[in-house]
C-alpha cells in the first residue's frame, strides 16, 4: 500500500505528469498527428501502401505525439485503436512515462488499452504503475494488467498475477494464467491445476498451456488432480501430461488408459499420441487387445502407426 502511495506521489511529482496534465498539446502537433492519422488508420485497400509510411511518420515525431495519441485512445473504432497501439509500440520506451501518467484516466476502456500497449512495449519500468491499477473496478483493465505483466516478464509482478488468477471474472483469470506461464512462476502451479476445471474454456486451456511450460515440475500436481470429481479437469490433466511428454508424465498417464470411463481412456491415449515419447508403445501394445471402444482404438492405432517405423 505504502509502495503504491509513494509511486502515485512519484508520478504526480514527475515533470512528465505535469506536462501531460497541465500544459496543452501544441496545436501544430495536433494538426500534424491528426492529419497523418487519417492515412495511418485508413482501412481502404487502395490506400494500403500509404498506411505504414504514415505510421512511421507519426512514430518519428516521438514523445510530442504521445499525448495526442493517448487522447485518441478513447476511439470506438477498432482499426484506429490498433493503429494507435502500433504507433506507441514503435515509439517504445519513450512513450512509457506518458502512458503511465494516463493510467488514472476516468475512461476504463482507455486505461485498459494503455495497459495493453505498456505490455506490448515490454519495458519493466512500467510494472509498478501497472500493478497499481490491477485492482481496477473494470475487469477489462484487470485483464490487460495481467496480460501486460506477463509480457513484460518482470518478477515484480508475480504476486499481482497470482492474485489475478483468482479473479471473479474469467477473462482476467485467463490473462493471469497466460502470464503465469510467461513468468514461469512455480508458485502458480497449484492454482493453474485448479484452473484446469475452470468453467471458462479460455482459462482452462490457457492454464494447461502454462503448465506445459513447467514440464516435470507440474506433473505431481496434475497427477494428484486426475481423480477429481470433475472429470473434465482430469481429462484436461491427461492432455496436459501428454503435451509435457516426459517419462514421468507418461507413467502417470499409463494408469488412465485403464479407466472405466471411455472418454478418459480416449483422452489419455490421445495424450500419449501427443507425447512424442516412444515409452508409450509398450503401454499401448499391452492395452490394445482389451480395448473395445472404437474411438480409443482409433487413437491406439494412430500411436502404433506413428511408431511403426521405429
Amino acid at each position: 500500500m505504502i509502495r503504491n502511495i509513494s509511486l502515485i506521489l512519484l508520478i504526480l511529482a514527475s515533470p512528465v505528469y505535469s506536462i501531460f496534465a497541465v500544459e496543452g498539446i501544441p496545436p501544430e502537433i495536433i494538426k500534424k498527428v491528426d492529419s497523418l492519422f487519417i492515412i495511418a488508420s485508413s482501412g481502404e485497400v487502395k490506400y494500403q501502401k500509404m498506411v505504414q509510411p504514415a505510421i512511421d511518420s507519426i512514430a518519428a515525431l516521438g514523445t510530442p505525439a504521445v499525448p495526442r495519441l493517448i487522447e485518441k485512445y478513447d476511439t470506438q473504432d477498432a482499426r484506429e485503436r490498433l493503429t494507435i497501439n502500433n504507433i506507441l509500440v514503435k515509439i517504445g520506451k519513450l512513450a512509457v512515462p506518458y502512458l503511465l501518467g494516463a493510467l488514472n484516466l476516468d475512461n476504463a476502456e482507455q486505461v485498459s488499452r494503455i495497459c495493453y500497449t505498456l505490455g506490448e512495449i515490454r519495458d519493466s519500468s512500467a510494472v509498478s504503475g501497472i500493478i497499481n491499477v490491477s485492482d481496477h473496478y473494470d475487469w477489462r483493465v484487470r485483464s490487460d494488467c495481467a496480460g501486460a505483466l506477463g509480457k513484460i516478464g518482470d518478477h515484480l509482478g508475480d504476486q499481482t498475477v497470482l492474485n489475478l488468477l483468482l479473479d471473479t471474472v474469467e477473462t482476467v483469470r485467463k490473462s493471469a494464467a497466460v502470464s503465469s506461464g510467461q513468468l514461469k512462476m512455480i508458485s502458480s502451479i497449484p492454482l493453474l491445476v485448479y484452473m484446469l476445471g475452470d468453467n471458462f474454456y479460455g482459462a482452462r486451456l490457457c492454464a494447461s498451456e502454462a503448465l506445459v511450460k513447467f514440464g516435470d515440475a507440474a506433473v505431481g500436481a496434475i497427477s494428484d488432480s486426475l481423480n477429481s470429481a470433475d472429470t473434465l479437469l482430469g481429462n484436461l490433466g491427461c492432455t496436459t501430461l501428454g503435451l509435457i511428454g516426459t517419462d514421468s508424465a507418461i507413467i502417470v498417464l499409463h494408469a488412465q488408459i485403464h479407466s472405466e470411463n471411455p472418454m478418459r481412456r480416449i483422452m489419455s491415449v490421445e495424450a500419449m499420441y501427443l507425447a512424442n515419447n516412444p515409452l508409450v508403445c509398450g503401454f499401448i501394445e499391452l492395452a490394445q487387445p482389451h480395448e473395445t471402444d472404437s474411438t480409443v482404438l482409433f487413437y491406439m492405432n494412430k500411436i502404433i502407426d506413428k511408431y511403426d517405423s521405429q
Binding site: 468453467n199 471458462f200 474454456y201 494447461s208 473434465l232 484436461l236 472418454m263 480416449i266 483422452m267
Partner: peptide, 19 residues
C-alpha cells in the same frame, strides 16, 4: 468437444466486452 477438452456450455459470450 469432449475430445477437445471443451463442453457445450463453453459456447457462450459475456455481454460486457463493451458498454
Amino acid at each position: 468437444m469432449g475430445m477437445m477438452n471443451l463442453k457445450l456450455t463453453d459456447l457462450t459470450f459475456r455481454d460486457d466486452y463493451t458498454n
